[in-house]
């Protein structure tokens, strides 16, 4: 006669049951998280490139090496931004009427016109960083 199997503690049985079941599908996560994962997947690669490029820039021995490393770093960062759907706002050096809702003025005062010193960043219709602007003309030397 086969000895009756010793009953196993309820907790371990439940554990076993759980182990039998296939893991809950990863697809059950919220849609927006999965979209973010998809959008970040390629941006991550570009960011990783940018980090490596930055090290090369820091370690550049001469101006030529530095210039090459800078170009590659800028390229990797721009690519990462594009993969996240970011777009640049404004044209470097352009003169525009000053609009505090569209420009971050980086000098004292409230000018009528400004010159774009650094482009802004937008995603869709949302401005994440306003274009940084300075005076449109240099003050005459006294």
């Amino acid at each position: 006669m086969v000895a009756a199997a010793k009953p196993k503690p309820a907790r371990s049985k439940a554990k076993k049951e759980r182990a039998k079941k296939p893991a809950a599908p990863k697809a059950a996560r919220p849609l927006v998280d999965a979209l973010a994962e998809a959008a970040w997947l390629e941006a991550d690669l570009a960011l990783a490139e940018a980090l490596a490029d930055f090290d090369e820039l820091e370690g550049a021995r001469d101006d030529a090496d530095k210039a090459h490393a800078m170009v590659l770093l800028a390229q990797s960062l721009a690519r990462a931004g594009r993969k996240r759907g970011l777009a640049r706002l404004g044209i470097l050096g352009a003169t525009e009427p000053y609009d505090p809702s569209r420009h971050e003025y980086i000098a004292p005062g409230k000018p009528k016109t400004v010159r774009i010193k650094a482009r802004g960043v937008a995603r869709g219709g949302e401005i994440l960083v306003k274009p940084r602007a300075g005076p449109s003309r240099r003050k005459k030397a006294l």
Binding site: R84, G85, G124
Partner: peptide, 18 residues
């Protein structure tokens, strides 16, 4: 190429890139 509605706030900026 990407319609404006893909930038809807409910997607938190994540639909448009893909």
């Amino acid at each position: 190429a990407t319609p404006d509605w893909a930038h809807a706030p409910s997607f938190q900026g994540n639909l448009a890139p893909v």
